[in-house]
Design a protein around this nucleic acid. Structure first.
Lengths: 329, 329
DNA sequence: ATGAAAGCGCTAACAA
DNA sequence: TTGTTAGCGCTTTCAT
């Protein structure tokens, strides 16, 4: 592997001049520039990023800390973050926490400034005291914990209200919710939106129609739906706090021969790619994932350049994708 | 951020001693060890990986080059690779190529030895001449191109035969295939297995039942299925070269009121998580993704340690997950 | 067993 | 405009 020194020797100039050419700096005598460029070409020189970053005091990486890549929402988001980071010459380091407190703590602990320049976090269990980050960071989504970290995400209360209002507009009156979670801030907000929409329409809040979910996987949605269908008075609609739960719920409905949307309308959240292709296809709250990724990376770029910028809270847009699980084709 | 020097000063020893303690090397006088450990604790020292790797001539990263994280198969695989790499103290750098030749070339070009120690590649369009890697690499899956790179993957011909034999055992006789692709090696092998299974059973090969797919997304499967259902003599079964195509095919079947599996049995490939939850659930060839991830990382670890190990070709196991899309519940 | 010092490849301050 | 050189934080001879 050719180094700057090799190139300099070949071109008969100093490393500084080569460095200048490589970095597009200042003014280099045309003659020298040409010889350096030839030497660069001849040696196939490629800068050693490790050395460059050591010198510059940066790493060239940002971390993306998320529960699990096998969860479609995070996989899609990760792809978008990688694309957005590329435009800022950042490589992305993905850390999986599996949604556990210990996993999240471990991931955070590994995020020294020598490893990454900044971090995008999507925590589920972290406590306030854990947020002693040594690099600029941005939180994805809303959380109850009041931590001094910038955030990017949608308005969960409004999004949940939109979903439930849609169900109400369809004439549904016994609307269930799947995904309540005591510790999870996002869940609390979606539940709040659910309640607000019910109240607004003068519908009663029935606590047996609110089913918690420990995890947000398909199996949890399936189990929750079984609970709901076993009720003496089952719901005629259900708002799931993510698409995975909704897919599980639809699966249970199919197994029990409950017709969707005729007997039961279902709305999900996240608008996973797969949701457009299920039968019936799934109505879902669609956050603008590309906007989230872009906003997060932009925010970090600013913070990395000027570390003590004020906290920010970016609200990204969302929409409701209406499909067959609420409106028959 | 505390450096080795800081710790050494605090402990009243040389950096060498501290380095020895940090790296668990040789014998350190108990008294010194204790003082170093206290200083380590007091300063909250964390080694600067960039500097360490610069010195060691390694980067601490491996690249995972894949088409797209939004494709569930790759997302699941990526998660497993990250987990496997962690056990070898490697961080994973994910590069998305979007399956294009230019994307793949660009990704490869960026893989200098100063960026990554090794690479796991999942190419779709690369030509032989592109494989001028400067770091140890492993190819995921089988490819026609004869390149001097180790490979890890399943036996695609055998896997495809297993899938088609299953359909034949169900009494299906007009078995279609979705996903033929002129350039893609994996597609050629799956097609080969499809043909072999038909031949073995004395079934005719009907070329109109083989539908190509430019991409392997859900939309492509849906379109291919429309083509098949428009045939004067449509198939009674279809083998899709991945689960995404199968999901699309199922969607089209539902739209056309074709009953699965009664009128049409469907088998997919990859066993994506989502495939167990569709209605009907999808029968699928299930590669052992964890084994693939582990084998790939292990192989790279060996190659990184002793660069001129012989080429290897690891065959990982697979199974057939039989579900409702072929056998009604 | 431990210290001193060189050097990984690069950038930037300082000289020239 | 370009060369010389120090030094980023670490590991590792080479002494001691």
């Amino acid at each position: 592997m050719a180094t700057l020194k090799d190139v300099a020797r070949l071109a008969g100039v100093s490393v500084k001049t080569v460095s200048n050419v490589v970095n597009g700096y200042s003014f280099v005598k045309p003659d020298n520039r040409r010889r350096v460029e030839e030497a660069l070409e001849a040696t196939g020189y490629r800068p050693n990023l490790g050395a460059r970053n050591l010198r510059r005091g940066r790493t060239g990486f940002i971390a993306l800390v998320l529960p699990e890549l096998s969860i479609p929402y995070f996989a899609e988001l990760a792809g978008l973050v990688i694309a957005a980071a590329q435009e800022h010459e950042w490589n992305v380091l993905i850390e999986q926490t599996f949604g556990t407190l210990s996993g999240e703590r471990q991931a955070l602990a590994s995020l020294g400034p020598h490893l990454v320049d900044a971090a995008i976090l999507s925590p589920e269990a972290l406590q306030v005291e854990d947020f002693q980050l040594s690099v600029p960071a941005v939180l994805l989504g809303e959380h109850d914990v009041e931590v001094p970290i910038s955030r990017v995400g949608i308005d969960n209360v409004a999004a949940a209200m939109t979903a439930v209002r849609h169900l109400i507009s369809l004439g549904r009156t016994r609307i269930a919710a799947i995904g309540a979670h005591p510790q999870r801030g996002t869940a609390a907000l979606r539940l709040e939106g659910y309640q607000a929409a019910l109240e607004e329409a003068g519908l009663p809040f029935v606590s047996s129609l609110v089913v918690p979910a420990v995890n947000y996987h398909r199996a949890d949605g399936a189990a929750a739906m079984r609970t709901l269908l076993d009720l003496r008075n089952p719901p005629d609609a259900v708002f799931c706090f993510n698409d995975l739960l909704a897919v599980g719920a639809m699966r249970t409905a199919a197994e029990r021969f409950v017709r969707v949307p005729h007997d039961l309308a279902i709305v999900g959240f996240d608008n996973n790619d797969e949701s457009a292709y299920s039968s019936p296809s799934l109505t879902s709250v669609a956050p603008d994932k590309a906007a989230i990724a872009r906003a997060a990376v932009d925010l970090l770029r600013q913070r990395a350049d000027s570390p003590d910028l004020a906290l920010d809270d970016v609200q990204t847009p969302f929409s409701l994708q209406v499909r067959e699980s609420t409106v028959a084709r």
